[in-house]
Design a protein around this nucleic acid. Structure first.
Lengths: 344, 344
DNA sequence: TTGAAAGCGCTAACAC
DNA sequence: GTGTTAGCGCTTTCAA
């Protein structure tokens, strides 16, 4: 079936001006709540806008100034933890004129570069980058182009704000919990990392560090045991397989992320083992999945929602004043004990 | 710490033209692979683009024509089924000049209107609407404004293309499977729906219809039993509570979506019951979650990936020729038997 | 308080 | 094959 005729021309600011019997300048001023429009004029213009169903073109606006668009770069749309962050962002931006647009699944540096370039090209008013792998230098270049908030990555920048969770402390919470339950052979599945900067800044590396530090603090240094894979379900599965094959099998596995813990549970099931009867398992993130009854995963709550609201607030602040000093928000994680961990 | 000085002015097409010693038209032609540029000129221009690191402004382009942006409206970012669709979309669009931008969490009609308006305002080249609740009339209005593909909704339109799964058949697959296992009291948890158009077009309604029809076809009409909630984990939980409280408790529960089945399993756990020992449970969507070992949910595979590739392909076709007749793609679901269903 | 007009960066019609 | 130029819809000086 053929489509109809070409759609009618869009209503422009000129149509509104003509309809209201004023200048386009006046309409623009009303749209932007700018100084210099009598309340009488405001009323006339608003009436015309409503009658004509006028909506400003973001492209045209972008050519001169703002696009009222905020970009969020998400590394992995399947990790439900990111959904919590998004909820926080949306909650904070709800009611403002900004529209959040997400670019997902850019899980490597070239992919991230592609996405951030696309956001710059589209004149976005600001971006929130979630757990980016991108080099510091490039991050600062991006932040030099548009207001930027980096989420989930440690380190301090003079050009972008950051929001992160204290992963070092969080990892310690898990180790302390397991040690208290009597576990000594506590293994950790980490996201493999060699890049020296990321080794300091990425949450996965900080968690691994926190794990090592806490193990030593509990005099368990000799039992430090890492499986180095990725923060994915598959990574958890492979990591668990490695650990289960050790001559001295660990009695507890601390997975670096809930999604990793899922992979661990998967591997346990496959090996006819279960948590916590055979092995205690802990995750990190407290995703909705972890709370799910049949799983009931012990984990660390990062308050994804708060991370999101903080990131959005910082971004709005920076959009309104790009010269303010940068802020580093560091949130404190809390332990959530559920049913996958038990006394040895 | 204060931010540095304002960033340098962006490189424009004029800079490129000057640098290459040609006109802006020439640059534009090269950028768009348009007719009328000698290979010699192409080389000069490309060299200048590279040297200057020029990238076209999407806002400026949008004012004249395309923005090279495709919008995807997602009702719920937590439902992993949608991630499969997105993967398909991204796979199909990878390598093209289009950037996919997602607007998520618009789980009601006003929210959807807000998002689609935002996409129109931003001059997007096309949109993929996933399981929209929006009225048919509004959908057609949107499609009259920009190329549109509607995913996961039945019904035929002369202005937009559709991609859907045969939910009627899919529901029948589950009922047949459970009936074959000897179940008779097979209950269904549906997403509550009263709107007459949506009752025909929305997948949830079609699945409920398919359930009823299949029950009768297996001479189980008298056992038709519906709990009417929502397609969320919470909805599954509440639906299961309702069904468990029946004087004659069902022996099998067919949840309308995997995420609903999660809620069902949650409720079972809470009631110290388990699947399939006490009650068989089936879902719909075959999300990655369903395949997860410790869950191992019997479900229906909708091939979300294929849905996505089809949607993206149709959209590209329509962008290139907006007058072609509309296409309706209907994919066939398949049954995936796992460990949550067992003989009575 | 109001409006005329320049111009943001790009594309496309048109002239050479 | 190449360049000139008129806008696309908006914001923003600047003059009235």
């Amino acid at each position: 079936m053929p489509r109809g005729p070409a759609p009618a021309r869009r209503v422009t600011i000129i149509d509104v001006a003509r309809h209201a019997g004023v200048s386009t300048t006046a309409v623009s001023k009303v749209l932007n709540n700018a100084y210099g429009a009598s309340s009488q004029m405001q009323a006339k213009v608003r009436a015309a806008i409503d009658e004509l169903g006028y909506r400003p073109s973001a492209s045209a606006r972008g050519l001169r100034g703002q696009t009222y668009t905020i970009g969020v770069m998400l590394p992995d749309i399947r990790n439900p933890f990111f959904a919590d962050i998004l909820d926080g962002i949306n909650a904070q931006l709800d009611g403002t004129d900004y529209q959040v647009l997400i670019a997902a699944s850019c899980n490597n540096e070239p992919g991230e570069a592609h996405v951030t370039d696309a956001m710059i090209d589209r004149n976005m008013d600001g971006v929130i980058l979630i757990a980016p792998l991108t080099s510091r230098q490039r991050l600062e270049r991006i932040a030099g182009t548009m207001p930027t908030v980096v989420v989930g990555r440690h380190g301090h920048s003079a050009v972008y704000d950051t929001v992160a969770d204290d992963d070092f402390v969080g990892a310690g919470l898990i180790v302390a919990h397991l040690a208290e339950l009597g576990h000594r052979r506590i293994a950790h599945i980490e996201h493999h990392e060699t890049n020296p900067v990321r080794l300091i800044e990425m949450p996965n590396a900080v968690r691994a560090d926190g794990y090592r530090h806490a193990m030593r603090a509990h005099s368990l240094g000799e039992h430090i045991d890492l499986a180095s894979t990725t923060y994915t379900q598959q990574g958890g599965y492979l990591g668990a397989k490695q650990l289960l094959a050790r001559p001295q099998r660990p009695t507890a596995i601390f997975a670096g992320a809930d999604i990793v813990a899922m992979g661990v549970l998967d591997a346990l099931t496959e090996a006819s083992l279960s948590a916590p009867a055979d092995i205690s398992v802990a995750g990190y993130d407290n995703t909705t999945f972890a709370a799910f009854g049949p799983i009931s995963l012990t984990t660390v709550d990062q308050a994804g929602n708060q991370i999101g609201t903080n990131a959005a607030r910082l971004l709005l602040d920076r959009i309104s004043d790009n010269n303010r000093p940068t802020t580093q928000v560091k949130l404190s994680p809390t332990l959530v004990v559920r049913r996958t961990t038990a006394p040895l």
